[in-house]
């Protein structure tokens, strides 16, 4: 890309006496994990293309506390939440978009009781709206006619009943969406939720991500579409274990749209 994309911080907005249209909450995975950073960058490119005036918190962002809360450490969760709320309220943030369903759920549902009230939108819903408002156009490009299956993240699907926005985006790519045996409200977890991402699984006969990846592979899809950085990691590991690397890709929906648009 020749054109330099600027990622302004909320502090920079304030310094210019402006407030951003929306705050992009990047999340820990999107900030630090090499695979997830690609999702972050793809989404920023789309925001930029659609001309959205967004800001990030940058170094002022901190973990929402989701893994702490699900691990049972309510104390740490509330410490994180109150620190973040102080920052967000300081910048008078009203609207937040995030590509991580865990951050989404926590910010949307668990921050209000601690004094943080925002309109929180998952990036798939946000992209859907941008397209509906004709701020962003997408064409199938390289995904046209490809068999794609979509893995429902628990914290987007069951937890918040968002099943359709991601599917509509996949259909806009002219891809052939094939459903796994367990999908939507019956979707099987990737195995990362509830802070499992950060610990070894308990003894069993299989890892959850392997079970889920096998189910995705059974559809014959060439692409497993994800909408959560943690699901993405788990499914990518599953693909490696199944030795399907290079044959089946795990992509976030934002990445798919960005690459279809050659961004």
């Amino acid at each position: 890309m020749s054109e330099l994309i600027k990622v302004p911080t909320a502090a920079e907005f304030i310094a210019q006496g402006k407030t951003p249209e929306v705050l992009f909450w990047v999340g820990c995975s999107g900030s630090f994990d090499d695979r997830s950073k690609k999702i972050t960058k793809a989404f920023v490119k789309l925001l930029n293309k659609a001309g959205v005036e967004f800001a990030v918190l940058g170094a002022e962002e901190s973990c929402t506390g989701d893994p702490a809360k699900r691990a049972g450490n309510e104390f740490l969760f509330q410490m994180q939440a109150m620190m973040n709320i102080e920052v967000l309220n300081g910048y008078e943030i009203k609207k937040i978009v995030t590509a991580c369903p865990h951050c989404f759920n926590t910010l949307k549902n668990e921050y209000p009781e601690l004094g943080g009230n925002y309109e929180v939108i998952h990036h798939t819903s946000f992209l859907k709206d941008l397209i509906a408002n004709e701020k962003l156009t997408i064409s199938g490009g390289k995904f046209k006619g490809k068999k794609i299956t979509y893995h429902d993240p628990c914290y987007l699907g069951r937890a918040n009943e968002i099943y359709e926005a991601p599917r509509e985006l996949i259909e806009k790519l002219d891809a052939a969406l094939v459903e796994m045996k367990r999908s939507k409200r019956n979707g099987l977890c990737c195995g990362a939720g509830g802070a499992q991402m950060f610990k070894e699984p308990e003894p069993g006969n299989k890892d959850i991500n392997i079970e889920r990846t096998e189910e995705a592979l059974d559809t014959g899809a060439e692409v497993i579409a994800a909408a959560c950085p943690f699901c993405n990691t788990m499914m990518s590991d599953g693909i490696k274990a199944a030795e399907k690397e290079g044959k089946v890709e795990v992509l976030d929906i934002a990445e798919m749209i960005a690459s279809a648009e050659d961004l």
Binding site: M1, I5, C28, S31, F32, C63, A68, M79
Partner: peptide, 28 residues
């Protein structure tokens, strides 16, 4: 516990410096 300690110390479940949260923007 290690992940929780990381969150407590540097605001992420991994041992990265909070000041580096925006480093990805340089890779755009």
């Amino acid at each position: 516990n290690n992940a929780l300690t990381n969150i407590e110390n540097n605001g992420a479940p991994w041992p990265y410096n909070q000041m580096d949260r925006l480093n990805w923007a340089d890779e755009l």
